[in-house]
Design a protein around this nucleic acid. Structure first.
Lengths: 275, 275
DNA sequence: CGGGAGCTTGATAGCTGTCAATTTATGTGG
DNA sequence: CCACATAAATTGACAGCTATCAAGCTCCCG
């Protein structure tokens, strides 16, 4: 269990004075133009659906924006606070979490690069969970995605993609409840690793079952509803059995079919292909 | 743990031969006209938002429709199967559930009267969970709600109501994960009872913390991620402490503030009031 | 009135948590 | 490149919550 001390630390770009924010945005923008010649978002969405030129242009524009940067343990959203604008994670991991008065914390979802934060269509929305950066997280504002979702007339494929990702998120959340309620520690971690592998590989962030996995054992514990000690012992058992390698924030799933089987991981199937 | 035997039993109206279905629909319709002079849905939606005449007319029309009837343990939706049309529950309780190969079952959400089933905006949607009737469940088809949600131009208040209920469902699902991952048996059941009381009271189905609660202890166990035996012992402890009365499918929460406190139940706040 | 589902109880096992100490990484400054 | 400081990972001992097994009981219903 993590005794959560609410330490905000230095949050860049977001929730800082305008003057500083703009300066940092410029730096970030400059950096992204030089180093982040990334087409990560374009790749992600083009894998979700065939986009029209208009839609692809929206994605390119969003992707070219300045980054908001959050340091580990900074809050990206706070439960109950108003959501200003939707963002998309360009790099880094975050955790959607809830906590109890005595400090017990439950992570209810992992936010990976390419995931949206605060993308919801109701008016004046409040955050339903607290979103905390696990690593350094870089996001871009993406109000256009909300527009495209709510009014799909000119952006049907983009809207369909967002429908799909929203439904997949719901699928993972149901799977999370299943894990927490009815699976053993070993099964929970197996299931979790398979989910992460599946989600990352579809974004080109995992190859051959091996990927960057920047969660500490305490974070894994808060996801899996376990204690750190038990997570540690379970991981070692998986290592002993030759099913994973995990060191220096890098996870290699050596026996993916095996882990999928013991964890009973089922990839999301949320809709039939358009006829 | 419930060793789930997939027994479909006799499903009325839905998924039965057309001839029989129509006959039963007529009977249901007749019954509803005579006995179910219900304005349940109108009341429910008028509490969610101020509806226009046009919108209220939609609700009235939906509510006047023939009922689909499901017997206890019948499946209303099956995970992975295509969703034909959205329905709204007019009476009875159902459970959204997932199960593991060895029969372990986790209920991931309780469906109460007034809740929608299969209301999602993506094209050709597949059910993400299996929905099983707990009691006899009566539903009406409500394709209009989907229309009103996807194209809110003529139905802005109805669409906003559906945004709200969808967000509240998400809130409850996050709370469910919190319960399962980080709360003790006693806290889980307290939290669950408070959630049910809150949701039912807003629909006029609970008064003074007392309501019809047709779940067996085995069902409660499948919601709370516990064994039947432990649910039984926990309920008795609550009774001994004078915090609840539970008999013959009727739950009376005698100490609602106390249970809310131990369960740390937080009612959903999903959006700010329109300015 | 029989039968069965649901509820209750006792005994026992075991998975997982807690506590505490040690070892190993990671990162920083000189 | 090394020393130090801190976070993270590891290990052992022990406790305890919850599951399992088994049996009896109660209530509802045909």
């Amino acid at each position: 269990m993590c005794l959560w001390t609410s330490e905000f630390g230095s949050r860049e770009s977001a929730d800082v004075p305008e003057s500083k924010r703009f300066a940092e945005l410029e730096i970030e923008l400059a950096l992204s133009l030089h180093l982040n010649q990334s087409n990560f978002l374009q790749v992600r969405f083009s894998r979700l659906a065939q986009l029209s030129d208009h839609e692809a242009g929206i994605i390119r524009m969003v992707e070219a924006r300045g980054r908001y940067t959050y340091r580990p343990d900074n809050r990206i959203l706070s439960e109950g606070m108003e959501i200003r604008a939707p963002h998309v994670v360009m790099s880094g991991w975050a955790a959607k979490s809830r906590q109890l008065a005595d400090g017990r914390r439950q992570i209810v979802g992992i936010v990976l690069p390419g995931d949206a934060i605060g993308l919801c269509s109701r008016a004046r929305p409040l955050a339903l969970t607290t979103v905390v950066a696990i690593t350094t997280v870089k996001t871009v504002e993406a109000g256009e995605l909300l527009t495209a979702w709510r009014d799909p007339t000119r952006t049907p494929n983009l809207a369909a993609s967002l429908d799909t990702t929203a439904a997949e998120d719901e699928h993972y959340l149901f799977g999370h409840a299943m894990r927490l309620g009815r699976q053993t520690a070993y099964e929970r971690i197996a299931h979790l690793f398979c989910e992460l592998e599946y989600r990352l590989s579809s974004r080109g962030l995992s190859s051959g079952g091996s990927f960057n996995m920047p969660m500490t054992q305490e974070t894994i514990a808060d996801v899996a509803g376990l204690s750190v000690v038990h997570v540690n012992r379970t991981l070692q058992q998986m290592r002993r059995e030759g099913r994973i390698e995990l060191a220096r924030s890098r996870l290699a799933i050596l026996d993916l079919p095996g882990l999928q089987s013991t964890g009973e991981f089922v990839p999301p199937r949320v809709s039939l292909p358009a006829e």
